[in-house]
Design a protein around this nucleic acid. Sequence first.
RNA 1: GCCGCUAUCGUCUAGUCUGGUUCAGGACGCAUGGUUCUCAACCAUGUAACCCGGGUUCAAAUCCCGGUAGCGGCACCA
Length: 509
Amino acid sequence: MTPKEKLNLISAGEVRVRFAPSPTGSLHVGSARVALFNYLFAKQNNGSFVLRIEDTDKERSSSEFEKDILNGLSWLGMNWDEGPKNGDYIGDFGPYRQSEKSSYKKHIEKLIKDDRAYHCFCSQEEVEAERQYLMARGEAPRYNGKCSQLRTEETEEMIKKGKKSVIRLRVPLKKVKFKDIVRKEVEFDSKIMGDIVIAKDLETPLYNLAVVIDDYEMKISHVIRGEDHISNTPKQILIAEALDLPIPEYAHLPLVLAPDKSKLSKRHGAVSVTEYKEEGYLPESIINFLALLGWNPGTDREIYSINHLIKDFSLERVQKSGAIFNVKKLDFINGFYIRQKNIDDLTQICIPYLVKSNLISKDDSGNYRAGDSQREISLDFIKKAISLNQERLKKVSEISEFTDFFFQDNLNYSKDLLIWKDSSKEEIVSCLDKVYTILSEIRDWQEKEIEGKVMQEANSTGDRGKIFWPLRVALTGKKSSAGPAEVAEALGKETSLERVKEAIQLLKE
RNA sequence: GCCGCUAUCGUCUAGUCUGGUUCAGGACGCAUGGUUCUCAACCAUGUAACCCGGGUUCAAAUCCCGGUAGCGGCACCA
């Protein structure tokens, strides 16, 4: 069976894709997008989404990062479909790990037996010197093929002597062409790479070899990955051909760029899913935003849940050029999803942020207490405070600065803030006096009632701001907030009156 | 340096295959107005782009040629 036929066999069958991060850093938003596109493609084809941790580089890999990646994926709602069942994992399965595989050796031995690969005894220094020389001459840096001429006996002799070697692939001179779902036809000339190293020794495959073997053994039908891998593709094809393995379909996704158009990285600020999560972005926002970076449905629709994406997504409509990660748009989308949330869910999402800023705490019996005074507050009170600011939130983390006055007893604001436009201090004092009287006479402490009574007075002044503005500042200590009547209702009559009184005193000082 | 990829408003993009319906459409941002005590939300209006140069054609963002720029990759990392 030719590789081509094998490929047809695969693609005629199940769609199987993989997300293969190396645990050398937290889950990057760019990787998350690669994972997303894989996930969407798998789901819409009733295929499988496989997670493979590429941890062959033990120096740089860590289990902390692996955990972060797993957590990030499941937080975003992308659960992988298979994996080992034993162990303590998030979700139904653990991930596959390259470090736990041991089938590479037989493939490497086969390559050597078939003379598609050979031992190379050149030292790293030698190779590096050659590389520098070629680069200086303006040529492609590649191995000169010195050890490819060694006879079997010579090789065995050197191995016997304990001379250190690596395994190189005999790269045939040819044009390597492949079809890319995103970019159509791509072509590389193999002469620019020379005989590449595919393994450090019989037990230790290098990345390109490991990928080919793993993808084959996991029966991966489509390799969907970042564009930064595009020049690895011809190498992997060559390896697969030498091994007589089928070649999967490829789709190389454009990169996620920073505002300066370079590949988005740590130096540009927040790049990991975890960081965005902590800043208060919702998973649905991140999914929606990431999907639209480099893909669009061809219609004007921009709001997409992951389930709708599964329906409408198509690899063919993926953009070819890199896309800049535009936080403003993310903020907009996040604000939209926050507004859509029902208040109970939003409250649960917000509470950790309020706790973190010491505005509220939970005591041993499970009751909530306000930050500074430790007075007991109800969940309904918290809910109300949040609900009054729901439409103002772009990020959940902003909840603290918007609602602090609900939980603090002392508002620290300058008395100038109480002054409406060019009113005089005396005018405002008298307005607040009137408001105090009005409020204190209200029996039915409801927003409507408060609003109605205060509005009556405000209308009679001719300039409503004279009443409403100082009242809001008195209640919140801020120059912007929800309507004073709503705030007053939430705060309660006692606290509201107290704050108005304090404002009057402040002005009289 | 070599190889590869890409190129429409500031940003994400539609349109490019199958040239005319497009003095280029949507969204974010920004600006202005409406609503309003403020902010937000909402509504309305506006702002702003076919990388450059040739060619083909009655007609080019769309086809051809040549530049230029940006990005990615060039490991005994992944």
